[in-house]
Design a protein around this nucleic acid. Structure first.
Lengths: 231, 231
DNA sequence: TTTAATATTAAACATGCGTTCAACCACTTC
DNA sequence: GAAGTGGTTGAACGCATGTTTAATATTAAA
């Protein structure tokens, strides 16, 4: 790899390294996606990028600024692919886990979602808005069940859609699946069944006598006008 | 515990403060539940317990050993309450969020679930097994839809049930709910509706059994202005 | 009371972290 | 070739962490 780029005319850098910043940023996204922001070290990023730790700071100012740059890059990556195919909502079902770059992007967002930082909150809010739009306008030909509290419904579905990615590591260990794609493939039919028909087949009878005390489902809030939704 | 040597003879604990260890452990559970294991510091635990950092190590040996002790304590706390009411599965819907000790216990388990440690994996596996039992035998009078892949179905439902607790912080900010209990109350009707009837009301005209290729161009409007700073 | 063992603490130690700095090097420009 | 500019590095700084240690306080046993 010759570092001397054949790019003529606008050669602004005396020393050759216009691509180093990109290399560092790519490594940072990978490290953040794998370990999260807190546990990721600048030295680890530098090692993954093949540069010195000081250079990372020199290019991005600080670890926090580097995180912001990664946020922009990942957000851009996902929204670009969103223009191509269906977008965020496909994360719920499947797809976008085959492309390794997209997979790390999803991991990155999930990790930022779990840290108390505010970056993840912006993404979450954006995602809920997106789902809310899907509930109102439909998605890929599907029509959602309507509710009075559309926002709460959108938040609920958004959380459900994100859950498999969040707990992918635990699912992989439990199910023995090799990678994210395999896990999603394993979960896909059950998710589709859940979204289409629910998880419960029958509701409990009102019979008084039973061996166990049961009746645990009847919370003061649990029975609040839940099932009575006729659009 | 209290005395490490010579309980065969009459020499018991000279200066024993059995409540100090308990105080430290309780503070540790709270700190771990709030910040997770990694970001929690021994000094923070000591400060919360009103003791010196060295005493924490003196009583439990190390931070890792203290975590193990907390794991046992939390697991015991939850399984004890499990004997009383329905147990884990109620976490999916509601309940057990009102009792503050139970709430921190749930937070503790969720945090350990998200860290790469192996402690959370044992809990997750246990939880999936529990859900699998519910699918086979039913739960609180409810009957689950049956599937060929009961394990995958149990894992799916377990993940769904855990999701609201995991993303409670994000949900709270998005929905404006004050605490966990309020968030769960807000989500409860939608969760019940999802479990009972699913999320989708109608399917697209083509058969939707395996692949989900959709050519729909549903006007994505996600042009969030994010200020970028590229070097 | 004396003694010995434990509880407890303040300080120190070792390590890893993000960051800074002075020097070096490659390349462009004069 | 000389000078200059910016990429790059290795060492070091300041800080926070988990843990250790020496010393003190406390209390049951002798």
């Amino acid at each position: 790899m010759r570092s001397t780029t054949s790019d003529s005319t606008s050669r602004r850098s005396p020393n050759s390294s216009p691509e180093t910043a990109q290399k560092i940023l790519s490594a940072a996204v990978g490290e953040f996606a794998e370990h999260g922001f807190t546990k990721t070290t600048v030295r680890g990023i530098a090692s993954a990028a093949g540069v010195s730790p000081g250079l990372v700071i020199h290019h991005f100012g600080s670890k926090e600024a580097l995180r912001t740059a990664c946020d922009d890059h990942v957000f851009e990556t996902i929204t670009e692919s969103k223009a191509q195919n269906a977008g965020y909502a496909t994360m719920a079902v499947q797809m976008m886990f085959d492309d390794p770059e997209m997979s790390t992007a999803v991991d990155y967002l999930v990790k930022s979602l779990l840290e108390p930082s505010e970056h993840g909150q912006r993404y979450f809010d954006h995602y809920v808005d997106l789902v809310e739009g899907y509930i109102v306008d439909g998605f890929a030909g599907y029509t959602f069940r309507q509710s009075e509290d559309t926002r709460g419904q959108a938040a609920t579905i958004a959380v459900m859609a994100l859950a498999p990615s969040i707990l992918d590591h635990r699912l992989r260990s439990n199910l023995g699946t090799a990678d994210v794609s395999a896990t999603m493939t394993r979960l896909a039919p059950h998710l589709l069944d859940l979204y289409l028909h629910g998880a419960l087949a029958s509701v409990p009878e009102q019979t008084a006598d039973s061996d166990s005390e049961s009746e645990t489902e009847s919370d003061p809030e649990s029975t609040t006008a839940a099932g009575a939704e006729e659009p």
